[in-house]
Design a protein around this nucleic acid. Structure first.
Length: 311
DNA sequence: GTCTGTTTAAGTCGAT
DNA sequence: ATCGACTTAAACAGAC
């Protein structure tokens, strides 16, 4: 594979496989599912390297989407006109990059394989697609609701500073860039908290740390109202060039079904709900999981209740 | 015609 | 050395 011999990194190939790039794109949007064109757009917006030779890498990316079980195709609904289907991450794919390398996974995700993941998540692609579509609905609803929640009941502070252990999906952009990133020369840049130092990485990766990419890593610059119930930015990466978190859904939203959201299971699986049981984020420094605090499911539940109230 | 999606094949590279 | 993950290329079909 040709490596560009340039002095700047902005047009050098990013240290991410197509799988991780695609996962990043999918994770960056609130619905956790994107059409192919939006995945292209996300990658090209963030990585100037991929603004060239589009036919080459886009073919590769499509190949990855079809070939890898960790991506599932979600058909468009009649009210979602457009070309192609939506693509989402399989509910059971978990943290495929637990070894910390976004270029090469330890093991390829396979449907039906042994995964330490959400036991309630469907394994069949069709089931997973339907399941994810419901999840997307719920996320949008919860997002709306969370945006209207100035503060969680019980004194939960929405500030990311006060919730340093907030779980982020392994593919969330803020999570990915927060991991140990070794520069081509072997240099690793970290803050004391394990996050990459903005001013150290920015010159090397202006496409990552330029517009909007560092919102999550540099949250203090944001207004308090820009955060969701999980203390993460509400601005969207995919629909406006800003970052948006995985909106949590409660593991046990209601005793029965959710009014106004037909088809939702009584017990919503923890997938993408930022539950430590379904996902195991790798700590940048220790490689250990960092389970979310006990208060977070409550916040998620509150977000969902507010979502229900909106409907 | 273009875009999307699937499949096959060959080659590279890292891990074991 | 071997295996498996990943990249790239290409052909093809179907949808828009």
């Amino acid at each position: 594979m040709p490596r560009p011999g340039r002095n700047t990194y902005s047009d050098q190939k990013p240290p991410y496989s197509y799988i991780s790039l695609t996962a990043m794109a999918i994770q960056s949007c609130p619905e956790k599912m994107l059409p192919l064109s939006e995945i292209y757009k996300f990658i090209m917006d963030r990585f100037p390297y991929y603004r060239e030779n589009t036919q080459r890498w886009q073919n590769s990316l499509r190949h990855n989407l079809s070939f890898n079980d960790c991506f599932i195709k979600i058909p468009r609904r009649p009210d979602q006109p457009g070309k192609g289907s939506f693509w989402a991450l399989h509910p059971s794919c978990g943290d495929m990059f637990e070894n910390g390398s976004f270029l090469r996974r330890r093991k390829r995700f396979k449907v039906g394989g042994l995964q330490a993941t959400d036991p309630l998540a469907p394994s069949k692609p069709q089931d997973a697609a339907h399941y994810l579509q419901q999840q997307a609905k719920l996320r949008l609803s919860a997002l709306h609701a969370a945006a209207h929640l100035p503060q969680m009941p019980g004194g939960y502070n929405l500030s990311p500073v006060s919730q340093p252990s907030s779980f982020k999906h392994p593919f969330a952009i803020e999570n990915i860039i927060a991991r140990e990133y070794k520069m081509p020369g072997g240099l690793a840049a970290f803050s004391a908290s394990g996050y990459p130092l903005h001013n150290q990485l920015a010159p090397a990766w202006p496409h990552m740390y330029g517009s909007g990419m560092m919102d999550a890593a540099a949250p203090l610059s944001m207004a308090p109202g820009d955060y969701s119930a999980y203390g993460m930015p509400l601005k969207s990466i995919c629909h406006g060039g800003q970052t948006l978190p995985a909106i949590p859904v409660p593991i046990k939203p209601t005793p029965t079904s959710v009014p106004g959201l037909p088809g939702l299971p009584a017990h919503i699986p923890a997938f993408l709900a930022n539950s430590p049981q379904s996902l195991s984020p790798t700590s940048p420094q220790t490689g250990q999981s960092s389970p979310a605090g006990p208060g977070e499911p409550l916040s998620a539940s509150a977000a969902l209740q507010a979502a229900v109230a909106v409907h």
